[in-house]
Amino acid sequence: MDWKTRLERLDRRIIFLVIFFAVLMPLFFPLGLSITPGPEATAFHAAIEALQPGDAVYLAADYDPGSLPELQPMLEAAIEQLCKKDVRIIAGSLWPACPPLVNRAFTQIAEGRFQKVYGTDYVNLGFKEGREVVMNQLGQSIRGVYPVDSAGAPIGDMPVMSGVDSYADIKLIVNVSAGYPGTKEWVQQVRSRYSIPIVAGCTAVSAPEYFPYFQSGQLSGLLGGLAGAAEYEVLVSGSGPAAKKMDAQSLGHIVIIGFILLGNLIYFLRSREGSVA
């Protein structure tokens, strides 16, 4: 059996094993590859930098634990930058499993690192069923949609909600989205109707669908997948959980590219031998 036949019949589990170690090794021994922020991440960062202290931001967190590795670093970095800018954060979710993830990020970043106070500097309104209907109703009255926060406390008396009751009082929507309902619906239902600027962070799978929104100016900034999160972290604080994972991501990609090239090389050689139809 020649080497081409051996490679053609290579057990797929060997490929899994190679990818496993390629991804694992950089977690133990970081390579320190450089990360250069692209225009999308730079625009995302600039949109938040343009906010003034005291401005109100709506943080639309629409994902679940299935997208945690990609999206939680984005959410944490966004909360960090918003806290640095001293703006008020009003968070809501259209995905039922998301509010605990938002609470975790608020506890770690807003409370733990910036000593922000719940109800004064930020609030988690929790989950609301209704998808696009909720997006539209928030434009009429946030208190009407969310009379109480995720813990059941009335939001009417909270200082963070002072002077804020619709999109007219919100300066920016920061959306972190894993699918439907998410970035696409925020652009379609809210950006076009209320002309409020939106920045979005999304999973890598859905990023190609949203690049046209950034190109057309419908999104003021866009973070696509772990790479987008890492670029944004570099801009916000120089490093972070996503940036640390990028070595593993890069090495994994190199291995996959190698396998694709090898597969094509063998296919090409077989074609020349006339054994591939």
Partner: peptide, 15 residues
Amino acid sequence: FTVMARMSLLIGRLE
């Protein structure tokens, strides 16, 4: 981008 997303999930689990 899909490969990148799946790789991210693997990294998350390994971490």
